[in-house]
């Protein structure tokens, strides 16, 4: 599967109410459309994707003074949220040579990642989201 292909949605508290409360995966992006964080709303999340995504814009991470400001989000409702999360993180790691900035800072919460191998002769994609 490819990465999350939906377009980014700029966060606004009113619109966030329409984010589903289900399990799934999501990305938080900055102004330039760079992925700052790849997350997962698991089975113990009280308000699923809605709670997790909203938390990034209203919680302490948004106000921690880091230069990267969250501006937008995109998500995917997915019952296989753990394996899809691993897939998105691995794709990002291999395409960009590292994890998104916020995931790097929260390494301890990450699942064990595997690796994919790029096809011979296919160069690593440069820039942009996976």
């Amino acid at each position: 599967m490819s990465g999350i292909t939906k377009p980014w949605t700029a966060f606004d508290p009113g619109g966030a109410k329409r984010i589903p409360g289900t399990v799934g995966v999501y990305e938080i992006g900055d102004e330039a459309g760079k992925t700052l964080y790849i997350g997962c709303a698991g089975g113990r999340e009280p308000f699923g994707l809605r709670g997790k995504i909203t938390g990034h814009f209203t919680g302490p991470q948004a106000a921690d003074g880091s230069p990267a400001r969250p501006r937008a989000y995109r998500y995917e409702v997915n019952l296989q949220y753990l394996t899809r999360w691993i897939e998105l993180l691995t794709q990002h790691l291999e395409a960009q040579g590292g994890l998104p900035q916020w995931n790097e800072r929260a390494r301890s919460e990450l699942p064990r990642l595997g690796r994919f191998h790029r096809a011979a002769g296919v160069p690593a994609p440069s820039g942009g989201s996976p």
Binding site: M1, Q80, L82, T83, R84, I86, E87, G114, R115, F116, H117, R118, A119, A120
Partner: peptide
């Protein structure tokens, strides 16, 4: 060996379980 040239993990196959998911 997984690092042998010519061996490649193409993708995860998402199934009903999260443990040791197949590829």
């Amino acid at each position: 060996d997984s690092d042998t040239p010519g061996f490649r993990v193409r993708r995860i196959i998402h199934v009903l379980r999260s443990t040791e998911y197949p590829c």
